[in-house]
Design a binder for these strands. Structure first.
Lengths: 338, 338
DNA sequence: CTGAAAGCGCTTACAG
DNA sequence: CTGAAAGCGCTTACAG
């Protein structure tokens, strides 16, 4: 099956290919081509079922109308949700998106940036790993449109859109304090990522600013990629090790799931009025967690804002300083308990 | 920042661009280019940080090394999991993947096929909606490599890789019968998709083949995109409407989640020994469902097999008849109860 | 108003 | 062994 090109149409219309190109790109007026001829060309193109070869267009124009989405893991519900909103937004401006998972592996992440660059991707949305700093700074030098999401590098002048992790946890802590819970534990994950640091910092600083006692052994740091059984065990013994515990904050929902489930599953006796707050990634989990308070990630806001920042770069607009680091505040959602 | 092309290297090496191309494509031997020169060219390319422009390669060769993944919704954990495995598999053979969500909308699905085609995508992996039949048959005509996943059209000769939904439910039913449960309800979703029909058929036929009574009002069909609250309500009253109910099968995990959660959440009194089986999509859910039996979707097998079938088509191999419709059997996973 | 030409960066058949 | 040329399908600056 031969594909229809601009030449085929030109031949049929009795004009030269460039005329067809001009018409089909809506520049007929500009080039003062008669309406009659322009229309005729459009009709023929339609009849012949012509679609421009995007590869050829890309080679010529240098634009692929494709976005690269580099995330930790597409099968993770947080990133999958992000991916959906990004797909929708990209679609609305005529872009398709190529996704790639870093699996939090620096080398893989850097490789992905290279791969996508040589495919002439127009812009990159990245949830970076720490080891990607250099590669990202190269992109910035090349003026390649790029937006970091969810994580950022303090010393890199890259546009980024983030959860306001600090305020999220701060709000959570203050919610608990307001309810009269002063003895609050904190469960997090041992990941050297800025967002995890921010959450931990918020936990300590908020309590301190309210003159509430904090103790290091009220904090549990689970290894990244901790096996569920191990996580459950550690969380359980952690909880029972603190007498008079009134509340617990899970700094990631991943742990939250294991944690809450573990509690139910093992039937551990914890105070039935233990207040639980969990940093959350997605809607779906809320169904499973009656009685807990969710710090809801502003996924939609992050995704939409990221695309906007990318578009500004496409238009060669300078980003204002206050657009370089955008913080989207999580929302506290209180689930009715059973 | 100027990008390095084959010409720059040629100039530096004192040869003509085609020589560089030949060497860099590993055809130096073939073209009887001296090892010394070949090496020199490779070194220069390396030094200059050369990467071939994929767009140009694509235009010339007609291959983009990109796959299109058309699914219902990337934010759905089933498809996200599929997407991850497909990403990995594609990566291992040097392909990137562009994803698009149909949202079960026929028009959108057809549009996506067109969009991806004009981007010269090398092959398509599709979980089709019913209305995509025509567009897919066009692809087949054009000999465009395509594999349908998870769903298929009985009258379309397209390669497809599917869950063996019938056997999955059949195994589930027989598992229940074996345990001595004869009064089994079935909760499904009102979607005109072949896999849902197969699951329902398996429920009825398996019971009938064992001479077990079935009644139509032991089946609940929820509307697609039923709101959680509504689903919970319907499932709850459905369960309590059947006296002496011994077991229940959820034909999708989506419902399963709502269903099980609803039971807990509303504290409805159901027989504590009610056996529950749920068609499942992904690992993560199993954590939430102690005591139920999962019919586990063979996601990994489907994804890997699909890529293989696509590759065969890339190599212009004819597919054997038994490769045209591949059924991957779900696995029964019995979760320890609390 | 319209046409001829150059060129995006590459690969490959062809000629020496 | 190596080089010159054509061409993938398009867009755009240029010339009439």
């Amino acid at each position: 099956v031969k594909t229809i090109t601009i030449r085929d149409i030109a031949k049929r219309a009795g004009v030269v290919p460039s005329t067809v190109s001009v018409v089909l790109n809506g520049k007929a007026k500009e080039m003062r081509i008669s309406d009659r001829l322009a229309n005729q060309i459009r009709v023929i193109a339609e009849e012949m079922g012509y679609y421009p070869n995007q590869t050829a267009v890309s080679l010529r124009t240098g634009k692929t109308k494709m976005l690269g989405l580099i995330i930790e893991d597409i099968s993770n519900i947080f990133f999958a949700s992000l991916a959906k909103i990004i797909e929708d937004e990209a679609d609305s401006i005529g872009y398709k998106v190529v996704y790639c998972s870093t699996e939090n592996n620096d080398d893989k992440g850097c490789e992905l940036i290279k791969m996508l660059s040589l495919r002439q991707i127009d812009g990159l949305l990245i949830t970076p790993t720490n080891g990607m700093t250099l590669e990202i700074s190269k992109l910035l030098e090349k003026k390649k449109p790029v937006v970091l999401m969810d994580r950022y590098f303090p010393y890199l002048n890259a546009p980024c859109v983030l959860s306001d992790n600090f305020t999220g946890i701060k709000d959570g802590v203050e919610h608990l304090l307001h309810k009269g819970h002063n003895k609050i534990a904190f469960v997090t994950v041992d990941l050297d990522q800025i967002q995890m640091h921010e959450r931990e910092r918020a936990y300590f600083e908020t309590l301190q600013s309210h003159n509430i006692e904090t103790k290091n052994n009220w904090t549990l740091k689970l290894p990244y990629k901790c096996k569920p059984a191990e996580a459950i065990h550690k969380i359980t013994s952690f909880i029972s090790s603190i007498s008079g515990l009134q509340a617990i904050i899970f700094a990631t929902n991943y742990l939250g799931i294991y944690g809450l489930d573990s509690i139910r599953q093992l039937g551990i006796s914890i105070p039935s009025d233990l207040a639980v707050i969990c940093f959350d990634d997605h809607d779906i989990f809320r169904l499973h967690t009656p009685g807990i308070t969710i710090i809801e990630q502003p996924i939609k806001e992050i995704a939409m804002n990221s695309i906007q920042l990318l578009m500004k770069q496409f238009e060669n607009k300078e980003l204002a300083v206050n657009e370089l680091q955008v913080f989207k505040k999580p929302k506290l959602v209180i689930r009715a308990s059973t």
